[in-house]
Simulated scan of single mutants.
Amino acid sequence: MALSPVEVERQERCGRDRKATGEQRRCNHVYKRVLVKAIVCVKVGVMPAATTTPVVDLDAAFAALGDPVRRALVSRLAHGDATVGELAEPFDLTQQAISHHIGVLRRCGLVEQRREGTRRPCRLRTAQLAQLSTWIDEQRRAWHDRLDALEQHLSDEAAR
Rank of each mutant, 00 (worst) to 15 (best):
T118V: 14
R70G: 00
A127S: 12
P54R: 10
R71H: 00
R16H: 10
R119N: 07
R115T: 13
G15I: 00
R18K: 14
T118M: 09
D17W: 11
M1F: 10
A72V: 06
I98Y: 05
V104F: 08
D137M: 14
R140I: 15
D145L: 04
R26D: 11
A63L: 11
R25V: 09
E138Y: 09
L77R: 01
A60R: 06
R140K: 11
D17M: 12
F62A: 05
A64E: 06
T94W: 02
R160N: 10
H101A: 01
V34P: 04
Q24E: 13
A127L: 10
L87P: 01
L154N: 11
R160M: 07
R146W: 09
A49G: 08
R71V: 06
K37V: 12
V6T: 13
D156C: 00
A61R: 04
L110F: 05
G15F: 00
V44E: 09
T134D: 15
T83R: 07
H144Q: 15
G22M: 05
V40K: 10
A159R: 14
V104A: 03
L65C: 02
D57P: 00
R25K: 10
D137S: 10
S75C: 11
C41A: 12
T83Q: 04
R115L: 12
Q131G: 03
R114W: 06
E7M: 05
Q131C: 03
W143T: 10
A78S: 10
V55F: 04
E12K: 08
Q139D: 13
V42C: 11
E138N: 09
R70K: 05
E7D: 09
R106P: 04
V44D: 02
V74E: 02
K43V: 12
Q152C: 07
D137H: 07
E86P: 00
S155R: 15
D156T: 04
R33H: 12
G45M: 05
Q113S: 08
P5A: 00
G15A: 02
R106S: 11
A130R: 09
V36A: 15
A88M: 03
E9C: 05
F91H: 12
V104Q: 14
G80I: 11
Q139N: 14
D148G: 03
Y31M: 14
R125K: 09
M1G: 14
K32I: 01
S155L: 13
L77K: 02
E12Y: 01
V34G: 07
G103R: 09
T126K: 13
I39G: 12
Q95V: 05
V34D: 07
S99M: 06
V104Y: 12
V36P: 08
L87I: 02
A159S: 11
K19D: 06
P5N: 02
L150V: 15
D17E: 09
